[in-house]
Nucleic acid binder design. Structure first.
Length: 333
DNA sequence: GGTATTTGACCCCT
DNA sequence: AGGGGTCAAATACC
């Protein structure tokens, strides 16, 4: 509880600080983009603070069940605790359904921007197609616990249902920004890095394109327990200028701050596919996974704010250099 | 040789 | 006991 209070205080302080910065940037010659970033940042702090408050309401009632192990829960006969366990179990999954079009896509049905390693495949009773089990490639190297299950629909083999569990704690997402960096610039800076893993840069570009095309391609995302999520993390939308989306500024800012890693594919809400709004709980650091243990035990949750980690020094730099190249992708690399 | 995939075996939960 | 999830040895690929 102390941790949450500290975090809450911290978020509010950050929000105040950012508001102060925004006030400064309201004067010319500060750029519109700078103000936009600051606004997003402020909203993020407040959203996170609100999330914590909401979370607490939930925690107070259910904490005992979370503190004990699932097996203990099951052996006990306390129906309340069992319900809580059940809720946790179901709410930690969310499902994405997507349609694949090409033969290539069928081979790689959900290139969702992360590196997954297949660790199993199982024939499922009553299903025509086996279920594939994937975990994050960086499970061992970085302790990333994200997993997903991929299963093709019986009725429509081009329709693939992907279930995700666990958020990415690896740094894959933060490297997305590199996808926007021209190859020449990248190779200049990192020598033969791209030669070593030619797949990565090219793939990341595709992945980011995929992410955006998902806005338009009818990607369907659902959660196992949406009502519950809404209750804990009320959805939150803010407008983003389409031009900024186009030039990647906003996305780069988010990516740099690991939002893609923390928000999961559910970030691409179908409700927003036709608009210029990102409908997200942008400050829900643990993605859509409502896993209490994550938000409480994971120390990175405190500082994992997608906008919150935005390098203040860079903003300060902007303050003194109005012509700072925000539209230059290298700034974010 | 390092990394990813496949697949049968095993474990756990219901 | 059976189904689903994971492990890990074997294999494939680069």
């Amino acid at each position: 509880m102390d941790w949450e209070l500290k975090t809450l205080l911290n978020e509010l302080k950050e929000g105040r600080e950012s508001t102060n910065q925004l006030m400064k940037h309201l004067q010319p010659p500060s750029s519109h983009q700078t103000r936009q970033v600051l606004l997003q940042k402020i909203l993020c702090f407040y959203e996170k603070a609100l999330s914590i408050l909401n979370w607490n309401g939930f925690v107070v009632q259910t904490m005992p069940a979370f503190e004990s192990s699932p097996s203990i829960d099951r052996s006990s006969d306390v129906s309340d605790q069992k319900d809580v366990f059940k809720r946790r179990k179901t709410s930690s999954w969310w499902t994405e359904q997507t349609r694949v079009c090409s033969a290539k896509s069928l081979d790689n049905p959900l290139d969702d921007g992360y590196c997954w390693r297949k660790y199993g495949q199982k024939a499922i009773l009553g299903a025509n197609f086996p279920r594939g089990y994937y975990r994050c490639t960086h499970r061992h190297s970085q302790g990333c616990l994200a997993i997903k299950q991929v299963q093709r629909s019986d009725n429509d083999p081009t329709n693939v249902e992907v279930k995700y569990k666990g958020r990415h704690t690896c740094n894959q997402a933060s490297h997305f920004a590199a996808a926007f960096v021209p190859v020449s610039a990248e190779s200049k800076k990192k020598g033969n890095h791209s030669r070593k893993r030619p797949y990565q840069l090219e793939e990341k570009q595709k992945q980011v394109q995929h992410i955006f095309s998902s806005f338009e391609s009818g990607l369907k995302v659902k959660t196992e327990d949406l009502d519950n999520r809404e209750e804990i993390f009320p959805s939150f939308s803010f407008p983003v200028e389409s031009e900024q989306v186009k030039n990647g500024l906003f996305v780069e800012a988010l990516m740099e701050n690991d939002i893609m890693g923390s928000l999961s594919p559910a970030f691409m809400s179908p409700a927003t596919s036709e608009s210029n709004y990102f409908s997200v709980s942008p400050c829900r650091m643990g993605s859509f996974e409502s896993d209490l243990t994550d938000i409480i035990s994971d120390p990175t949750s405190v500082t994992n704010s997608p906008i919150g980690d935005l390098d203040i020094s860079s903003l300060d730099k902007l303050e003194f250099d109005p012509s700072f190249p925000f539209d230059n992708p290298e700034f974010f690399s």
